[in-house]
Design a protein around this nucleic acid. Sequence first.
DNA 1: CCTCCACAGGAAGCGCAGGAGT
DNA 2: ACTCCTGCGCTTCCTGTGGAGG
Length: 433
Amino acid sequence: MTGDSRLADGSKGLLQGKDRGLGDPLAEVVERALSRPRIFRNREVMRSDYVPGSLPHRWEHIRRLGEILSPALRLSRPSNVFIYGKTGTGKTAVVRHVFKRFGEVAEREGLPLSFAYVNCRIAGTEYRVLAELCDAVGVKVPFTGLSKAEVFSRLRRGLREQGGLLVACLDEVDALVKNYGDNLLYELTRVNEGLEAGGLSLVGVSNDLHFKELLDPRVLSSLSEEELVFHPYTAIELIDILSERAREAFYEGTVPDEVIRLCAALAAAEHGDARRAIDLLRVAAEVAERRGDPRVEERHVRLAQSLIERGRVFEALSTLPLHSKLVLASLLILHRNGVQTPITGVLYQAYREVCGLIGVEPLTSRRVSGLVSELSMLGVVEGEVVSMGRHGRTKKLRLLTPVEEVEEVLAGDELLESILEHRPSVLREVGKR
DNA sequence: CCTCCACAGGAAGCGCAGGAGT
DNA sequence: ACTCCTGCGCTTCCTGTGGAGG
């Protein structure tokens, strides 16, 4: 994910010493690794998918969710719950915490009760969400090949035959609904009809506060029989969270309070995202450890901040499909030639030329405009719709990512590297205006 | 005030891949 | 071998629109 150690390494540094040639190239690395002052006691604790034993400042939410779901322990179907709040406010952690505890109880008491956690954005499609739910009730379905209706009826049958309860958390449901509409949710909220014993309870989780507006009123009322709202953490709360993690993750005295306060303050400034705060502290500690410094300091945090940012950009850009890269390359070429904010038409022409240079069939303008929107959702470019009167209505595009970073990514690709020096003929027309 | 440009962006549908069932 | 299903990337066709210039 963001700022992982591969990126934090700075691969350039690794290459520089490669030809010294004498002896065992690993000897020094091994020695340094063993002798270096250690900062991490337990790295796991700082990972983003770690479920902590206690969640500071979320006791109330845990208790509420526990109360709502508690009928499950008596094998009666709990109300559906809808949870919303921004990223990194502890929604997922709270749900997982409650699921884990209840799961333990169910197992101890031998209750026919199971808990499923599905991240809809990662699952990606309605089919895969359904497949994961099936999996949770012990029904095996193939990756693909069945109609959704078939998978759905198998889920139903599974629930009926098992006669138990399934409490399913659909994390990031907004992603599902935005792409596929609320059909699946509607079906799922109705799955209990005609089941005498057992059934399905849903815990919907969304980052998007306006998500409710996308839902059919019937789905909404059934999904949010209960509601929980998570507010962003304040800087003070983040300090507690980080301190608690730090106590487990690091050796004593290696992470001073002011470092924690800095990480908390930086993350609080960006919507109180606890995950960001934890990532920042983790990467800062990794930087310090790699440099052989005995403790984490402010400069490590600053460095971590830029590493995470660059890592995110690099990751996002280098995994882009070919034509998105070509669009980006076109934008870069125009930028290099002094056109910082080209309009759609100019970009598309430059793109077609670029395609011609490397012998790739260009996509239609409609598709390219879609790619541009994707890039702008990634925060790589910015598009502002402007009206130029007689000259129509179009979009002014601008690179948001620093040029050098885009160059770095594109230059890594042989095919693209060769076109970056191109001087598009569109420029002449642009010059005329 | 009206026109009309140069697109934005929605809707629908196509062809293909990957896979299941028969 | 054949049919049927979904997802995906894409094209085609379309309607909508802010405002400079007439």
